[in-house]
């Protein structure tokens, strides 16, 4: 198959970027989108040009490294799934495909299609954990957890931290990401003791990092490769309201 690529090229965050056109010819429909980019890069290198910088690692949709906006959609048109799980047979012969990085202010630009998403790490550092010293844990079966809570916690915990939610959100909000971690831990008894501070601190760091606000457009859940439900955002709002109240009442 043959395609026409329009790829965002920008050397550094300070430099000016633009879309550049590249042909992607003789691509097998069984090629993944990233392998197609590999192919284009190999040809660029052999032709003496600089390859397109883009990141990926596991290439099976779990590590959350790849962060491409393809034809205006985070991770491309094949939802749910990460860009690495997108195959060229999904596109039409001769189609023009636009590739841009994930764009949000807190995602510091690095190069071409690469951004730095450590803002998400800092949100977790603000409280997205259970303070359990190694070796101090009680016997695992000593606290039964209702199956439906464990299952629901797993649904939230499935987040791969790719940042597509913020990239796709018209407001560049990271509420879905934050709500997934808050909900995961709030649903389990082990997360309960730190519940109040966790949600307050995580939300405050999320705001400090410069993510936008949620206006309930639900674009995030539509592009989430891990199918995290936006109902966790409602849970986050609830947790936040309760925590604020508890703080005000001196709890």
């Amino acid at each position: 198959m043959n395609f026409k690529l329009r790829v965002w090229r920008q050397k550094t965050g300070a430099a000016k970027g633009k879309l550049a056109d590249y042909p992607a010819n003789d691509v097998s429909p069984d090629t993944s989108f990233l392998e197609m980019l590999d192919l284009v890069n190999d040809r660029l290198i052999e032709g003496g040009e600089e390859p397109i910088a883009f990141e990926s690692d596991c290439r099976e949709g779990i590590c959350g490294t790849c962060c491409l906006t393809i034809n205006g959609e985070a991770h491309g048109p094949d939802h749910p799934g990460a860009a690495c799980q997108l195959y060229m047979r999904r596109f039409k012969e001769g189609e023009t495909i636009t590739v841009e990085p994930f764009r949000a202010k807190p995602f510091r630009f690095v190069k071409d299609l690469v951004v730095n998403r450590s803002a998400l790490d800092r949100i977790v550092q603000a409280g997205g954990f259970v303070s359990a010293r190694s070796g101090s844990a009680p016997e695992a079966n000593s606290i039964p957890v209702p199956k439906q809570n464990a299952d629901r916690a797993m649904e939230a915990a499935a987040c791969i931290g790719c940042g597509a939610c913020a990239a796709a959100c018209p407001n560049a909000s990271a509420m879905l990401f934050t709500s997934a971690k808050v909900s995961h831990l709030a649903l389990l008894p082990q997360g309960d003791p730190e519940r109040t501070n966790r949600v307050l601190n995580m939300v405050s760091v999320m705001d400090e990092e410069g993510f936008g606000n949620c206006t309930n457009t639900y674009e995030c859940e539509a592009v989430c490769p891990a199918e995290i439900s936006a109902s966790f955002i409602a849970k986050l709002n609830r947790e936040y309201a309760v925590a604020t109240l508890r703080k005000k009442l001196g709890g």
Binding site: E100, R103, G210
Partner: peptide, 29 residues
Amino acid sequence: RLTIDNRRARPNAYAQKDYVKASFASRYM
């Protein structure tokens, strides 16, 4: 205030942006 925050959160706009689920109404409140 919300809108200013939200605009600031994406200083560099996408050259091409498609919405999968976000409705017209929700984006143009």
